[in-house]
């Protein structure tokens, strides 16, 4: 018998009642007694399952219901309806028992104590999560080594750069050896080097510990670098759930052929209807084509017959474009 999925989410729905604001002191007074509301449907029926060890990217435009989903899954918010069973528990019903087994990193909010050295935050988290001393020592040493934190441990958090802090945040969220990790915009605002370091770490973590990771991000490079599976949410429901390749294929089967020619050379008209020039930058010319209609060999044959090609390669269109198309399809 196959083991049960680690995360089961069924038909989650959540509607917010947003109070219309009133002004002034009397308005504030009246605001407690009776309020007028308008309703915002944040989730209309979200369902998915995750197996242990999956690393899934959860993406969508602002206001699509991403953070509402994460809040429900991490026990912060109670849904109006729907079922949710994670690590055998209902997050909002057994909050304390449940959250001890998960880790949460909010990219824009720190979980460390601002004025204290990093190691003090770690020690306090040990007590908050009741990590046995022996296990804590081991866990800390491993994380310090993997994330290169040794020189940072005695530095007050307020003196860390954003990239250094994010590495410490990751360690802080893993000290208690959670089985499920939520990463909410873990690379936001980071420089290129830190982004790569964070991504490498997440990839290794997922591989070595079989830790299940749910990653929300606006940075499509994160998704491309890390996630085999992607879920796209829009207008409160899941629009797409599958592999990155399938997402590409379903939204846009287009591929790109990039050729390098002398920059001043005029380009010939392409005789193939399913291929067109989309961009020309210096030596590089980007030609988009539909591989179902035009075989790459046919296209390259025609181009090399009329142009002195210096180089050429075929790539997938960047994920940003795919997502933008997907949003366009669903009119988000």
């Amino acid at each position: 018998m196959a083991p049960l999925p680690q995360v089961i989410v069924e038909n989650l729905a959540k509607t917010y009642r947003i109070a219309k604001r009133r002004t002034g002191f009397l308005g504030a007074l009246g605001g407690i007694a009776r309020r007028e509301y308008h309703l915002v449907r944040a989730l209309t029926g979200v369902s998915f399952e995750l197996e242990p060890g999956e690393l899934v990217g959860y993406i969508g435009p602002n206001g699509a219901g991403k953070s509402t989903t994460i809040k429900i899954l991490s026990g912060i918010l109670v849904p109006d309806s729907g079922r949710c069973q994670i690590l055998g528990k209902v997050p909002w019903r057994e909050r304390a028992a449940y959250v001890g087994q998960i880790g949460v990193v909010f990219g824009q909010r720190s979980q460390l104590w601002w004025d204290l050295p990093v190691v003090d935050s770690f020690d306090l988290l040990r007590d908050i999560y009741r990590v046995p001393p022996a296990r804590y020592g081991q866990s800390k040493d491993t994380l310090v080594q993997a994330l290169g934190l040794a020189p940072l441990l005695d530095v007050p958090v307020r003196q860390l750069s954003l990239g250094q802090r994010m590495r410490c945040e990751l360690a802080a969220s893993l000290l208690h050896a959670p089985r499920l990790l939520f990463l909410d915009e873990p690379t936001i605002g980071l420089d290129a080097v830190s982004k790569l370091a964070v991504r490498d770490f997440i990839r290794e973590l997922n591989r070595q510990r079989e830790l299940t990771v749910i990653l929300t991000t606006h940075d499509m490079d994160d998704i491309e670098a890390l996630c085999h599976r992607v879920m796209v949410i829009g207008r409160g429901s899941i629009l797409f759930d599958g592999t990155l390749d399938r997402l590409r294929a379903s939204v846009s089967p287009e591929r790109r052929l990039i050729i390098e020619v002398p920059p001043e050379l005029p380009l010939p008209e392409l005789a193939l209807p399913a291929a067109r020039v989309v961009k020309r930058e210096g030596e590089q010319v980007h030609i988009s084509f539909d591989p179902r209609v035009v075989r790459p060999a046919q296209l390259i044959g025609e181009l090399s017959a009329s142009l002195p090609l210096r180089d050429l390669y075929v790539v997938n269109p960047p994920i940003e474009e795919i997502i933008a198309k997907l949003y366009g399809v669903f009119d988000l």
């Binding site: 991490s74 909010r109 908050i128």
Partner: peptide
Amino acid sequence: RGGDFDRILVRPRSTVLQ
């Protein structure tokens, strides 16, 4: 207002204590 209560809710201790 800063959303820091979320952080308290994802820790396995009573809200009052935290």
